[in-house]
Design a protein around this nucleic acid. Sequence first.
DNA 1: TAATTATACACAACCGTTTGCGCATCTATC
DNA 2: GATAGATGCGCAAACGGTTGTGTATAATTA
Lengths: 342, 342
Amino acid sequence: MSDKPTTIKEIAKLLNISVSTVSRALNDHSSIGLITKMRVKKLAAELNYEPNQRAIQFLQGKSHTIGVILPELSESFFSAAISGIEDIAYKRNYTVLLAQSHDDQDREKLLVEKMKTQRVDGLLISVSKTTSTYEHFEALKKLNIPIVFFDRIPPIKNIHFVASNLETGTYEAVNFLLKKGHRTIGMINGPSTLVASAERKNGYIKAMTSQRLKFDPSLIVGCDLSDQGTKEAMDTLLHHKRKPTAIVTFNDYVALFAIRHARSLQIKINEDLDFVSYANLPIINYMDYTPIASVEQFPYKQGKKAANILLDLINKPRNDSGTEQAYFNIVVESELVINQSK
Amino acid sequence: MSDKPTTIKEIAKLLNISVSTVSRALNDHSSIGLITKMRVKKLAAELNYEPNQRAIQFLQGKSHTIGVILPELSESFFSAAISGIEDIAYKRNYTVLLAQSHDDQDREKLLVEKMKTQRVDGLLISVSKTTSTYEHFEALKKLNIPIVFFDRIPPIKNIHFVASNLETGTYEAVNFLLKKGHRTIGMINGPSTLVASAERKNGYIKAMTSQRLKFDPSLIVGCDLSDQGTKEAMDTLLHHKRKPTAIVTFNDYVALFAIRHARSLQIKINEDLDFVSYANLPIINYMDYTPIASVEQFPYKQGKKAANILLDLINKPRNDSGTEQAYFNIVVESELVINQSK
DNA sequence: TAATTATACACAACCGTTTGCGCATCTATC
DNA sequence: GATAGATGCGCAAACGGTTGTGTATAATTA
């Protein structure tokens, strides 16, 4: 029946007062008399009046909206992250515009563009794997739309970001294995192009050398993270002249496949061979043969932190003068979690 | 340096022409001369002009935005669904406003309210578990903002919805087990308050009776879906006078825990006891002891379908006359997927 | 050549709300 | 009783586009 939402004009007309009076009455402005305020509020309530946010956003040049671009929403890391982002946005009365790049650079560029024309107040982004140029972010910077990069950080200077430091977690993980008595520890690492691979490697090296053990580079094998690649990496390690008694895998998918492969070779998991991985999968606890420990990256927490930083940037007094801008480079320490169930 | 985005006014002033001419030139209106068009477009490109979508949305009373309210983004079913929703929205040039209710009725109400004040063109929602009243949806209806309910459907009349029919999938699942030779089939079902539990039960009964087998209600045990509840349900079934040789579990979490419990009792999975479950978890394929088959609900596909229906509703010519409104009640058939890896 | 018709642009209203400013009316002060 | 200050409200501009209508100039036709 009723079609268009009630406007302030209609209220004004019905009460024979001006729109400005209605507006001020609703906002409890001091210059409006008590009786008028009451009359306006009463009618507004009856008509289910609600201010048109689009109009206000337009008028004020603020959208109270943040854009979020993630590679893949169905990846549990990112869905946990967006959950944290949305929680903070909700709490701080912001709205979330969501989009996924599907790890496609071109789509990512289009999405950044779209976010810009949508006039988001800020952007939170985890860049796609294929992204190799970064000019599309410059445009936002020029418009003073803050960007907070998240988890997947582009290799450029002067940016805000939140990411986990896998080095410390890896260090803990390897140390944990060393304390358990392992001396030959293998690692199935990711592609060397990823920052995350380097961090894992560094953590490994630090742990070994801190125990005055010699670092053997051949115990770290690269992997394209596919099932086939994992299998090949495992075979390389298992045929190594110093056969490892424990293996650190790049992520849970790799771990699970590696474990399965090892079991098919009659290797006894958690007896002959221990695994440590990085937590991507929530249900690892339900499984039978699992890594004995995981490096947890706290995606939900990271999402919350990134969102908070972005909103702080949006609401901080503008950096009008030529004073130097500070960049938030937040590192969420990863942490080793010993698998309880085993 | 540059602060505010370029506006059409600035272009007009620089070229000494009117804003309307600039607008029409940019939109290739026929009444604008070729030379003028070129000049305008050239300058617009130089100034990186982009139309302010917020202004256009405001002017046209359309936001080209759909709201999506889901209970929990970190649940894989919903993250897969939002992925499908976003893909369709992107393809059809709509924008997604995302929020999660955390299965809290009050928060859900607030979010619906917020979506309304944000003037979304339509709403896609999977209602929270605790939602028991439904007036907050009525307000949207009055404003002609279409709602498509999704997966979790409220028990009210005259609504659009997309949901999966678990009855057919369950029927297939039980039938599959019967064909494999099983005669005593147990079921760990969910709380009887859920529609989904009834659907599973009905599918079970239909499959049994269609094979002229007697339906034994005591072989279906309810479960609160907790680990402890699962364990108790399993014990009930395993101590049943007719010990089942196969069990259908409410979801993968229940299945995995049930399997672990059975194994701890020295029961040989897939020899002494077969399991069939409902697919919630993407990585079930990586596991060692898994259900031999799963009822797949295609959340990604459901998300796409729901989004498409919503956008069709938004863009269909208004139902001005008193003609009856048709309601989309789309049922996405669930489907039995035989576990390949076993 | 005058009348007609395109052509190419400008003017102005509009969307819903906020907000600075101006202007009455009333009360208090001297 | 005149003046000052407070009180309560209206007017109008502004945000950035779109679009219907008006109008001057140029091209076409009779």
